[in-house]
Amino acid sequence: MTRKVYLASVGTRSGKSVLSLGLAMNYPGKVGFYKPFRESIVVKDGQPMDQDAILMASVLQLPAAEKLSPFVYDMYDPIPIDHIVKGYDEVREGKEFMIVEGSRNLANGYSCGISSFDIAKAVDAPIVLVSSTTQQSLESAFLFKEICEKRGLELKGVVINRCEGSKERDFLESKGMTVIGGIPDIPQISTFHVIEITEMIPSKVLAGRAGLNKIVEDVLVGAMSPQVAMRYMRRSKQKAVITGGDRTEIMLAALSTNTSCIVVTGGITPSRMVTSRADEIGVPIIMTEEDTLTVVEALEHLIARINPDDKEKIELITRGIRKGVDLDLIW
């Protein structure tokens, strides 16, 4: 009989992907993965795929990554629940432990009978809820628990993401919630390389190609005055600065501080003064036709992304989950 767990969340950036990977890497037997709905979509070999599915297919050596996350959720044209179950059954064969990863949002699919609650019940999987430490997420955990109880679903407990102390755990446990553990804050897994920006958004590198392998630890939007911007830039190390091509003073300020790259939005070519200085110090200037909000959202996905080739990140996550989560309660 295949063991299984359904990982649910009540909001974005909850840590489900990190927990999925950590569980998969720590389980001693053959692990399978299924995420019904694609969310962070990337194009691989000309085909849209889910970022998490690509990662798990790689680390678990599973064929056909597209089958691990086959559907796109559309409230007006929903996928029937039996199609979702059929997809699960196809990838479950031969596995000792199945990880089923739910959608980012508690409400997704609720009106169509294909919510996390519906899918967990259909595949007969106990649920582990992954929550951030925000008050809204912690409050929503109790709503989630109440729905599980009303539907007769097994909620094993909660895993708290970026759990630094005991305050959140004590709060949840004082109100009858089982806490399975916490995902420690691992700063290294929130970084990415400059070159990954060029892979994520349609863009052109105008200068500073020598710095494409630099690490990005922070993202700043240069929408303020140069004087204010300089104060923020001095505090932030190894940053990507997003600004318009006509904001020469902002870009020069960025180039005078610890900046990994500058992303120029709106398709406006920056001045020669900026590109020459960027070439001198090896800071890439990346120009895109996209607007600032689109670029910010793309970089947020990069912050959350785990590259299948990044063995160091994967090992950090594996150790962090082993240390912070009571795995016996999940197996």
Score class of each variant (00 low, 15 high):
D50L: 07
E280K: 12
R13Y: 12
K175W: 15
G244H: 06
S20A: 13
V42S: 10
V216P: 04
T134Y: 12
M49A: 13
S260T: 03
K239A: 03
P78W: 09
S256M: 12
M233P: 00
G244P: 05
N161G: 12
L68A: 04
S140V: 01
K239I: 01
L299K: 02
P78S: 11
I160M: 11
V18I: 15
S131Y: 03
D45P: 03
S20Q: 04
E315Q: 13
D170N: 10
A223T: 10
V31G: 12
R319A: 10
E139F: 13
I41L: 10
E217L: 09
P284M: 01
I119P: 02
D89S: 14
N213P: 07
K204Q: 13
Y88F: 15
R234W: 08
D74A: 11
G152Y: 10
S103E: 15
V158P: 02
L138H: 06
P63K: 09
F71N: 04
L60R: 04
T318G: 12
H193W: 02
A240G: 00
I160R: 11
G32D: 09
Q227W: 02
A120Q: 02
V296A: 14
D118Q: 05
M75E: 15
G222A: 10
E149Y: 10
G324Q: 05
P70Q: 07
V179A: 11
I81N: 06
T292A: 11
L327S: 10
N258K: 05
V130C: 09
F33Y: 15
G15E: 08
K239F: 00
S236H: 04
I303Q: 13
D328F: 09
S236K: 04
P202S: 13
E96M: 07
K237I: 00
S116I: 03
A223E: 11
P126V: 05
P270D: 04
K156P: 01
S132V: 06
E101V: 10
R247S: 08
K30I: 00
V283T: 07
P63L: 08
K239W: 00
E139D: 12
D89F: 09
I183H: 06
K313A: 06
